[in-house]
């Protein structure tokens, strides 16, 4: 299906129709003052059709929440465990291209070899409507450099690109075409000057951006060519807040904890990861990563080195959420810039 156009006044109609067909409509919403955060606006309304910046949390917060029940413990003494199905139909609206790219990576990870059913069931019941960027979402963002913005190349069901009078619409999947088919009257063919307008905005955004040479970066890390002082500095800065791993749209690590009372309860899984020394410490107390700087190095190496080996691309999408939440002012962007220099 070729590119389509939807007028500004029709997008709200589309959204209302989409809401009818889902259980949760996850869209950016203005919370306190300037905070923009994905929220379920199906009943509550208030979604931002177009917005600046990006949500504090990514769609990961719905597919792999900070804590979620992994299964139900019906009886401890009889060993009865039951799955908790999540059949909710979710439509994500206004997802930024960086987060779409993150979803592609997360899909490959969770659906590979051993399938992670709790993730898969939520992913498969979800529809993703991307909204390409027409300006950088934060001073620190570097999605263009990481080849993850300002427009998603794949991974979305629909992608909207704002132009003056409405949106250009790209269709990325069967789920996306179904939405178009069901709402035919709202869509039209775009005029050539619309496409030109969109292109101009993109050009403007991409100006001055230099794509990172991922392979070279990974190679340098692989050969341990980073100055030791870089890791030392990072080690002194990190105060183990865990904000980076909680907000990162491609962080997938977790731990489990049981919440039981009496003979029943649930097993939770919750966000966990590199910064903690306990993350790799074994029951007897020994650990393969005794130094704190190695914990953050592990985080950086996973994203920028090992995943390049595994997926051919880094699993950092340049969204800058980790940078904007780091109380140690650690910047993966500065790290990349310095190393790739």
């Amino acid at each position: 299906m070729g590119r389509l156009f939807i007028a500004k006044e029709d997008i709200q109609t589309l959204i209302e129709r989409l809401k009818e067909g889902c259980d949760e409509f996850i869209a950016p919403k203005k919370e306190h003052l300037s905070d923009v955060i994905f929220a379920d606006t199906k009943e509550a309304g208030g979604e931002l059709i177009d917005y600046e910046g990006n949500s504090v949390i990514s769609p990961r917060a719905f597919l792999l929440p900070q804590t979620e029940a992994l299964f139900e413990i019906k009886s401890i003494k009889d060993g009865k465990f039951f799955p908790i199905p999540d059949k909710k139909k979710r439509i994500f609206y206004g997802v930024r291209p960086c987060d779409i790219k993150a979803l592609i990576l997360m899909r490959s990870f969770f659906l590979d070899e051993f399938v992670d059913i709790p993730y898969k069931q939520k992913l498969e019941n979800s529809t993703f409507i991307a909204l390409s960027c027409n300006r950088l979402c934060s001073e620190e963002a570097f999605c263009c450099e990481m080849d993850a913005g300002p427009v998603a190349k794949e991974g979305y069901d629909l992608q909207l690109t704002a132009i003056g009078k409405g949106y250009l619409v790209d269709v990325g999947s069967e789920k996306g075409s179904r939405i178009i088919r069901n709402n035919k009257k709202l869509f039209a063919k775009p005029e050539p000057r619309d496409e030109k307008e969109a292109l101009e905005t993109l050009k403007c955004l991409a100006k001055g951006c230099k794509r990172i040479d991922f392979k070279k970066l990974a190679g340098m890390m692989n050969e341990d060519k980073i100055k030791p002082s870089v890791w030392d500095d990072i080690g002194l800065r990190c105060v183990v807040c865990s904000g980076c791993i909680t907000l990162c749209p491609t962080c997938s690590c977790f731990s489990i904890a049981d919440r039981v009372s009496g003979d029943s309860g649930i097993r939770l899984r919750y966000c966990d990861g590199c910064p903690y020394s306990g993350f790799t410490r074994m029951a007897g107390g020994s650990t393969p990563f005794p130094l704190h700087k190695d914990h953050i190095r592990r985080f950086f190496e996973h994203k920028l080195n090992y995943d390049v080996g595994r997926y051919g691309i880094p699993s950092c999408v340049g969204c800058a959420r980790c940078i904007n939440t780091c109380p140690g002012n650690i910047s993966i962007r500065k790290f990349i810039e310095e190393v790739a220099k």
Binding site: E113, D116, S252, C253, D272, T280, E301
Partner: peptide, 14 residues
């Protein structure tokens, strides 16, 4: 924590 290559605890150099 998982045994199936998901939880990340035992991850080492890819």
């Amino acid at each position: 924590k998982c045994g199936i290559g998901k939880c990340g605890h035992c991850y080492i150099k890819g």
